[in-house]
Each structure stands twice: as C-alpha cells, then as structure tokens.
Design a protein around this nucleic acid. Structure first.
Length: 193
DNA sequence: CGTCAGATGATC
DNA sequence: ATCATCTGACGC
C-alpha cells in the first residue's frame, strides 16, 4: 500500500506519482489515469481559498486521508489530501481504468447500459460507491478504501484544470491536470499535451 | 470535434 | 447565487 508519507508532499508531486496507482474498495479495483493538483498555499482554484468551513474541513486534514464533497448536488468527488495537516491541499481523482468489479461498478451507476467509461470525477466516485460518510477516511490503512502502488505511465500529459473559471488567471492556466498518455480512460483529451 | 441546457441540492 | 459534473441533443 502507499504509505502515509507518500501523501505528505506537494500536491503536484503526489499527483504525478498517483498516475498509474491503484484504488481498491472491496471487489472494485481502479487504476488512476487522470488527476488534478490543488496546491497550497495561494491556489485560488482550491476549495480552501476562502478558509476552513464545515464542508471543506476534511481538505485541511492530515495527508493520506480522503476529502469528498457533493458536486452540483449529484456527484461525490474524491480527493486525496496531501501536504501537511492544517494545509488545504489535495489531488482530485478525475478518471480511472476499471481493473476489477465491473458488475458492481455497473450496478452502482444505475440501470443504464453501455460501456463502462470512468472518464470523469463523478463517475469515479460512483464506481467506488463513495458518499460524504467517507470524509476523513485514511487510505493508507487496510479496510475500506485503499491506495496501492501500480504501474507508472509511459507518458504523462498535462493541461489546465477543468471547471475552475472562477480562479485567478494564473491558477486557471496552470498545467496541473495530469493524465496517463497511453490510457483511453481520460477526459477532454484535446486539452492536454 | 464542439457547444448547450437541464438535472439537482448543499453551502456560505 | 454559486458550483472541481453528467447526459443527451444538436451542429460542423
């Protein structure tokens, strides 16, 4: 498993090293193919930009824990908290390649048929069956949601983060979205290089 | 490939 | 009012 110390670094470094890593919960296993770094301090795209609140409290927690929040009233987005305790930094998991548990993933996303494409953060949260109850969960401990070392990417693509138009222009343009180059499970591929 | 609207609900 | 999204519809 990835040790707690793995997460106690700058979010951009952790993001790079999380590409190819594995997330596992019960019979469902995913390979991380796309991430975004939300850094500390001074990142105006981060949920921590207005200070600590009830909703983002877990974001300020110790490294190696989980920050989940409800996005647009529908999707539970998964962040892995990085840096030091008391800092608001994390890596958002945007896309994954399913490795095991396809039938469970299919069931969790509802009755729809069609191919399983985990090419968006809401889909990743749904595939893992996450909700707000997972806030603060430690992924370096066995049981529940776990993070493992995986196969590093051959090529890393980079581009601006998605959906952060509200941020300062420098933060909006910062190439802190990272993706596995050879993976089909990546969203907005044309915005990467 | 691109854009767009509507769903949907907690938060500050 | 805002929002780190998804889906389906439509146009090129």
């Amino acid at each position: 498993m990835l040790p707690r110390s793995f997460f106690a670094r700058d979010a951009l470094e952790v993001a790079r090293d999380l590409l190819g890593a594995r997330l596992q919960r019960g019979g469902v296993a995913l390979r991380i193919t796309e991430v975004e770094a939300y850094r500390w301090p001074g990142d105006t795209a981060s949920h921590g930009r207005h200070g600590r609140t009830e909703r983002n409290d877990a974001l300020w927690g110790p490294p190696g824990t989980v920050y989940i929040y409800l996005c647009y009233g529908m999707h539970h987005l998964l962040n892995l908290v990085t840096g030091a305790d008391g800092e608001a930094a994390a890596v958002l998991v945007r896309a994954c390649e399913p490795l095991a548990g396809l039938s469970t993933i299919r069931r969790r996303r509802g009755g729809r048929d069609g191919p399983v494409l985990l090419n968006g953060p809401g889909k990743v949260g749904a595939a893992l069956g996450l909700d707000l109850g997972w806030n603060g969960h430690a992924v370096y401990l066995p049981g529940g949601l776990e993070a493992y070392r995986g196969t590093p990417p051959k090529e890393v693509l980079r581009g601006p983060r998605i959906g952060v138009d509200y941020a300062r222009s420098t933060d909006r343009a910062a190439p802190w979205r990272l993706a596995v180059g050879e993976s089909a499970w990546v969203g907005y591929r044309s915005r990467l290089k």
